[in-house]
Simulated assay, not measured.
Amino acid sequence: MSHSTAATLRIRKLPSPARIGVYAFLISAAAFFVLPLYIMLVTSVKSMEEIQLGNIFALPISFTIEPWRAAWSSACTGVACEGIRGGFLNSLAITIPSTILPILFGALNGYALSFWRPRGANLLFAVLMMGAFIPVQVMMFPLVRILAMLGLFSSLPGIVLVHLVFSMPVMTLLFRNYYASIPQELFKAARIDGGGFLRIFFQLMLPMSVPIIIVATIMQVTGVWNDYILGLVFAGRDNLPMTVQLNNVINTTTGVRLYNVNMAATILTSLAPLTIYFISGRWFVRGIAAGAVKG
């Protein structure tokens, strides 16, 4: 092999400027998101004396889980000092029905708009899509008045109903686009066999909808669990979700600000959506690829 050929091969093995730029961007983006999480984790296992030394990037000299215990069971979230444990249970009570009901009704809407096409279906779909683009703040006061007249304001059914209303446009769009990718011949064959509206839906369409149901579940659980403004306004004092109690813990104005407890409470609040992401993130991608954005 000649000297010039060997030099050419060495040059080819060097990464191109474009590849270097891509890696630099990816590393910077990863650091942008990972660095705050790292600071939260190391701060949550330090004592206040160690935090007051000022080195937020240093690993803990003396590891402690006491801030986590305090955040869970004894941090003040207002008048009561019972931690964010109650908010976790409230968030579960809100999130479970606020996920099941929108997915069920969204699937029914998408199924009806895709296969049965009732009179005025296009108008109904257009109205639903308009609802997806109206800011939450615009509809806040009318919903307060409506729920107050119905006797549901500041109650668990009230906040579930609000989440159902706000999630219906997106859920309908997801299932309508997914069902639009299913061959019409399957539906027609089921109709010839004597299947009715609900029978075809529950026995044929719903079993075929597992990929999009996974996508909808991840989106809905994450959105409802991370919600703050709707829970603050509509849930009531007895049903405040974890995010509202976290805000009360962090923004307390009495006594010493316990940064380690605040960080532990923040991680505990975000633990549920993070767990869902790490467990089912690949299923989300598969569901999207299976037809969630087809139309």
Rank of each mutant, 00 (worst) to 15 (best):
F115G: 00
S91Y: 02
L124G: 14
P211K: 04
A71M: 08
I182N: 03
E66C: 04
Y277K: 03
F115T: 02
Y38M: 09
G131Q: 07
M263Y: 07
K294M: 08
E50P: 04
I61C: 04
K294E: 07
P273I: 01
F125Y: 15
W116V: 05
L232T: 08
K13W: 14
L258Y: 14
R12W: 01
A265I: 04
G287Q: 05
T43K: 06
R145C: 05
A75L: 02
N262G: 14
W225Q: 05
I11S: 13
I84H: 01
Y111M: 01
N260Y: 03
N122R: 15
L108H: 10
L150A: 15
T172A: 06
T5C: 00
F175L: 10
V22Q: 11
C76N: 14
N247Q: 10
L37K: 11
L156F: 12
F125M: 13
G86A: 13
T5Y: 01
T77A: 14
R237C: 02
A112Y: 03
S74A: 13
A264I: 08
V144I: 12
S280K: 07
N122D: 12
V138R: 02
F32K: 09
M242K: 05
Y228F: 15
C76V: 13
V165E: 07
I276Y: 14
G106C: 03
V244N: 01
I103M: 11
R19G: 01
Q137P: 05
L89K: 12
V144Q: 07
G131L: 06
S47V: 05
P169F: 13
R282D: 15
F153N: 09
H163M: 02
K294F: 08
S2W: 00
T43L: 06
I192L: 09
S62V: 11
L123K: 11
T43H: 03
I200D: 00
H3Q: 10
H3I: 00
Q245N: 13
T266D: 07
L271T: 14
L104W: 11
T217W: 11
T253V: 12
Q220G: 12
P142C: 10
L104D: 06
L240S: 04
V215Q: 00
T243C: 08
V127A: 08
G196L: 11
L123G: 11
V127G: 03
T217R: 12
F153D: 04
A80E: 12
A189V: 13
G236V: 04
A18E: 04
T269I: 15
A58H: 11
G120C: 03
A190S: 14
G158N: 12
N55L: 12
I100T: 08
T77H: 10
G78L: 10
L128P: 00
A292M: 06
Q184A: 08
Y178W: 09
L173R: 06
L53P: 01
I212H: 01
H3C: 00
F88L: 15
A180R: 09
A7L: 15
R176E: 06
T95Q: 04
